[in-house]
Amino acid sequence: MRRANAALLNVGLYVGVAVLLVYLLFPFYWAIVSSLKTPSQLFMTPVQYLPPTPRWSNYVEVFTSQPFARFLLNSAVVAGVATLFALAIGSFAAYALGRFQFRGRTTVYYATLAVTMFPQISVLGGLFVLIRGLGLYNSLPGLVLTYMIFTLPFTTWLLTSFVRSIPIELEEAATVDGATPTQIMLRILLPLMAPGLVTAGLLAFIQAWNEFLFALTFTLDERSRTVPVAIALFSGASSFELPWHLIMAASVIVTVPLIVLVLVFQRRIVEGLTAGAVKG
């Protein structure tokens, strides 16, 4: 009886997992199928579930109908530079917060945490004025600067908890040998922090790569447009006939690098996401 119950439970579990996988993955299947159809196949009823003869030229058209390569490059540069800046200055902040005792440390730590929880819309107006004032409207440096609002506090916070988890003995030994704190940071802690830097960098990069509100508001034309904005602003002959085959092809193009990142760094990403939740 017990065994029968357990078997039943197992079957139930696998059915549940299968349903879940279909739910999670079907939208991707549908995006891929749609990206390989002609417009007339897309607007056919009843809907065709299996891909017809794949129309790979849709993927070429994404790049020829607009400067999509430029948008990809813009996204990569903005996300990459914003991540590198955040890691460069955030790691020193994390060292200070994780290893030094001083009055105001807790305040700075919680203020940083508060910025990550911030509704970004509530600074949009002030940020617009700042960006215009600095002459950075419609420019990639402008986007990099505004992206620090989420990449920097996030990396600082994650790296601080990472620094605290590194045993202190090595640094104490180096202090005895007469190393200065800056030497300790650069020669000892930074190499030990490498896994934390990878995790924080990945998560910051993904956030910056996906960002939409600032990219939509602080850019004007194709020179500084990023991929999410391009995908949002796809337009067709009329508002009723959006070029869904191109929108889906472009969506697949930006999703593929993210899937590769997730596959390669799965463990690190999960570690980073759960760092706050489990360690507290």
């Binding site: 879940l20 939208p27 991707f28 549908w30 993904i206 995908i231 889906m248 997730v262 990403i269």
Partner: peptide
């Protein structure tokens, strides 16, 4: 492992892409 990857993907893609995929569906 497969489940974990499948779960990470919707989280990792841009909100804009998710919205467009569902808008079409």
């Amino acid at each position: 492992g497969l489940m974990r990857t499948a779960m990470l993907v919707p989280w990792a893609i841009p909100g804009v892409v998710a919205a467009q995929m569902w808008k079409w569906m």
